[in-house]
């Protein structure tokens, strides 16, 4: 049996915010015409959620779906269910011009939480992360320091980040530096 490991094995850092690597997360990339009824039906069945609007993400107890680009969706689910869900999705999309791929092991997921979580991420991304501009349900692909990342807000004090697994160590590093003790900015009037 394989001993499956996420990129950083639940590494964590405590500073002005708590940074955690979240371990194995099931992820399926789905590309195609997201307006097509066939694809909508297959995607919502696979994620167990409704379709997300532009730059939005929707979640349920067992999964989630995020809008990645005009022709790309990201389906989130428990790691153990990826194979089954992908199979069902591929079957449902038979004959449709679309692509569904299991990318769970190609990515890493981080959680940044605490009253200063938004500040920590805002130090690294050219995005307005104020609670008014970026709230739970929003989803944003952007640049985190030097690498690509996608961000969404679980609640006002919790942000989640997806990056490529190959740069997980780098992302954990920059997040840890940005969350060093004593580095509060107070711009978003945290708390």
């Amino acid at each position: 049996m394989f001993d499956l490991q996420s990129a950083l094995a639940n590494a964590r850092f405590d500073g002005i915010a708590q940074i955690r690597e979240l371990g194995l997360q099931g992820m399926i990339t789905l590309r195609g015409d997201v307006a097509a009824p066939v694809l909508k039906k297959a995607a919502t069945a696979a994620s167990g959620t409704a379709m997300p609007g532009q730059r939005k993400a929707v979640f349920s107890d067992t999964g989630g779906m995020a809008w990645m680009s005009p022709d790309e969706l990201l389906i989130l689910c428990p790691y153990a269910e990826v194979t089954d869900r992908l199979e069902a999705l591929t079957d449902a999309l038979a004959g449709t011009h679309a692509l569904a791929v299991n990318v769970s092991d190609a990515r890493a997921v981080f959680e940044v939480s605490g009253p200063h979580a938004r500040e920590v991420v805002a130090k690294l991304c050219p995005v307005d992360l104020s609670p008014q501009a970026f709230s739970p349900g929003d989803f944003r692909r952007t640049r985190m320091a030097q690498v690509a990342a996608a961000i969404w807000a679980d609640d006002d004090q919790t942000l989640r980040i997806i990056c490529f697994r190959s740069v997980a160590r780098y992302v954990f590093g920059v997040l840890s530096v940005a969350a060093q003790k004593g580095s509060e900015v107070g711009y978003f009037q945290a708390g």
Partner: peptide, 12 residues
Amino acid sequence: PCCGVLADETEL
């Protein structure tokens, strides 16, 4: 114009 984001030059 594809995703509606006001993107900073460094994101492009």
